[in-house]
Design a protein around this nucleic acid. Structure first.
Lengths: 251, 251
DNA sequence: CGTTACGTTGAAAGCTTTCAAGCATCGTGG
DNA sequence: CCACGATGCTTGAAAGCTTTCAACGTAACG
């Protein structure tokens, strides 16, 4: 839970970013890439468990996940925690700080991560000089909104088993879009406490719920991670369809 | 639940929009106003109960609420419904259609409403010619995201009474920002079924939960609306603080 | 080798849903 | 004008789901 140290040097150049080649991301023009490259200030390596952004803080940076998993969460004053969404490679974090007074949620790394660091104060130039990238920012925010809508539907209206099935299918689908599956399988690097805090359930009940999924052969619980064996079965159980995602921007 | 007819003429000119004067909204330049005015295509009057946007549809319009209340919702295939958020004057609807393939949620009017109708295809011009307005679009999307974060925290982690208290305090706070209170009171035009579908509770339990709030003198239930008597008490019960909102854009 | 974090289980307590009924209001058709 | 059906609000009780409490096992770490 330690705070992360300021950024280190840079290794990855935007023009040859390993993510850009993926089929999920839209092509950028050379000009756009040049701007993004200038927008980037460096890279940050965060260890598993470290807090990348903190509720109430006012960070001067924006980040994009280059590698690793993280999650966004909020807590009530008495400590109850709700995980809001997960962050995977290609996801942008910290826009909220540009818009609100201060961060309204925190972000914690689930694995070791590498993040691209951007300077927030060049955001105006982005909107001024690159309307397409400006639109992308709105696009990205709307995408997050859509995911939250789905989570809210799930937490509000699905049963415990359906909820768990939905969440795991959702994570599978996201990793799949990034070519992060090992065969058809996926290792999700989370503890049962994380799942409980995402699903709005107690940890004990989460454990019993996961057992039901495991008994059906849909998942397997390993060390401190969940192996998804049958994403289609999970989707069916949750009555959820993979969204037809269009190519998305990578900033 | 009838579908709404296409728009009618226009009465309100953006330059003298009754909402713009409110202290919650930021000042727009004359130039911005001129663009917005040209962006506007007309007005739509929707009756209470009518569906303004429909999941799966592909509307060519964006809307801003001029007057009245509405709500956004999603449903599971078997009919379970989750209300995601409420729409009040000044709120923008339909951006999601510009970004996703099709609408991923529906919007239904809670009262009679008047909406400004915009043509989606001029959105590019907005980002190109008015970077400030482009940023505003992102701002608006981030604001919605923040509200969803709070709702998710609430549905996931608060008890039934806290959840109800939070929701009513939230609605009070939004109406307050628009100068829509009558004295310190607020009439919220919803049924208990709407509240239940927002809180993720059954209608029976919602009823019993509301009684507890009423017994404490925090609210009063009227015909088919809720009167909020003590917003401060509700906030305290939910351990929720009004967000310090900055002036927001009105598009 | 003690401590801590994580996962598991069983049982009791507590919360929420479901089922069943009943009341009031409102608009419609006879 | 009145009966009737639909909608919305209430209540009590039983059934079902979830949390809490308590314990225990394991693996990792200092």
């Amino acid at each position: 839970m330690s705070l992360v140290l300021p950024s280190v040097g840079r290794r990855v150049h935007c023009e040859q970013c390993p993510l850009r080649g993926l089929p999920s991301f839209r092509e950028f023009t050379a000009e756009e890439l040049r701007f993004i490259s200038g927008f980037k200030r460096g890279e940050l390596v965060a260890e598993s468990g470290s807090i990348i952004l903190s509720e109430g803080a006012r960070s001067p940076h924006l980040y994009t996940v280059l590698s690793g998993w993280a999650f966004r969460f909020k807590t009530l004053p008495d400590g109850r925690r709700q995980i809001l969404n997960y962050l995977l490679p290609g996801d942008l974090l910290g826009m909220q700080g540009s818009v609100m007074f201060e961060m309204e949620h925190s972000v914690e790394a689930l694995t070791q991560m590498v993040l691209c660091v951007f300077q927030r104060d060049k955001l105006d130039d982005l909107f001024k000089g690159y309307p397409g990238l400006g639109f992308d920012m709105t696009w990205i925010a709307s995408r997050e909104e859509r995911m939250l809508d789905e989570h809210l539907l799930s937490v509000g209206r699905r049963t415990a088993v359906e909820r768990a099935a939905y969440l795991l299918a959702f994570l599978h689908s996201r990793a799949e879009g990034l070519g992060r599956l090992e065969g058809k399988l996926l290792h999700v690097p989370i503890t049962q406490q994380h799942l409980a805090d995402t699903l709005g359930l107690s940890i004990v009940h989460t454990n019993k719920t996961l057992r039901k999924l495991a008994d059906r052969g849909l998942i397997r619980w390993l060390d401190r991670s969940c192996e998804i064996l049958d994403a289609g079965g999970l989707r069916e159980l949750a009555d959820w369809e993979k969204p037809a995602e269009r190519k998305r921007p990578l900033i």
